[in-house]
Design a protein around this nucleic acid. Structure first.
Lengths: 110, 110
DNA sequence: TATATTTGCAAGCAAATACTTGCGAATCAT
DNA sequence: ATGATTCGCAAGTATTTGCTTGCAAATATA
């Protein structure tokens, strides 16, 4: 259970994206995170380990608790990769906008 | 081999990202794509199937060839998800920039 | 028509993934 | 000191992934 460990693979899992969404707001300890999900604490613990291994979160021991803090700088990589294809969706959105504008300008009564 | 089939999972695989990078430039048929990679044609064919299933490419039959064309509108979803955490890496970059600026302004001789 | 090219389908396999349960080690509260 | 809380480690399992090889269908070329 340890091979590819990059940001793209880390955010592929919906549970891990949910965890990111949770700790991005505020640092949270392991059990509090686990309580929010239907799977076992161990399952969440593994997700946290994966996120930590690829640098998307950092752990901070605080007494018997481990606080997970978001470290989302590496999402920059994903952003860069996706952005290079931005034209593909902005074109579509522009087309939609034009279409809607034309609907307004024409004397259509639907 | 068919469960989650969303954009995040599709782009998690480096081979699939490479395929996207290839067909984004120009539509390409299956064998030409496969020739560029070290794995078998069947492996590539499966990757193409996955990409097609989640809407990142469309197939166009042309004689005995199947032309794969990029349809990257759905990358918008990824962009939206990542963008909401933009502060996490822009803060870091700003800090770096400030640091570098201070290096310039100070009378440091290293 | 015979042959080569392009491709999908199916079976099979090793490894990775996403889980679970059980246990034990810290740490904290009473 | 006793008991509860927090949490990692280990073992075990089912499913998914990424890949392979073999075969057949469709299309093009000679």
């Amino acid at each position: 259970m340890e091979a590819r460990r990059d940001v793209f693979q880390a955010i592929a899992d919906p549970t891990r994206r949910a965890i990111i969404g949770m700790i991005a707001k505020q640092p949270t300890n392991v059990n509090t995170i686990a309580d929010r999900f239907d799977v076992s604490r161990q399952a969440i613990s593994l997700h946290l380990k994966i996120l930590a291994e690829c640098g998307l979160l950092s752990m901070k021991q605080q007494g018997r608790e481990r606080i997970c803090e978001a470290r989302l700088e590496k999402l920059h990589e994903v952003n860069e990769w996706v952005t290079q294809y931005k034209q593909f969706w902005t074109q579509k959105l522009d087309a939609l906008e034009n279409y809607l504008n034309n609907l307004d300008n024409d004397d259509v009564t639907i």
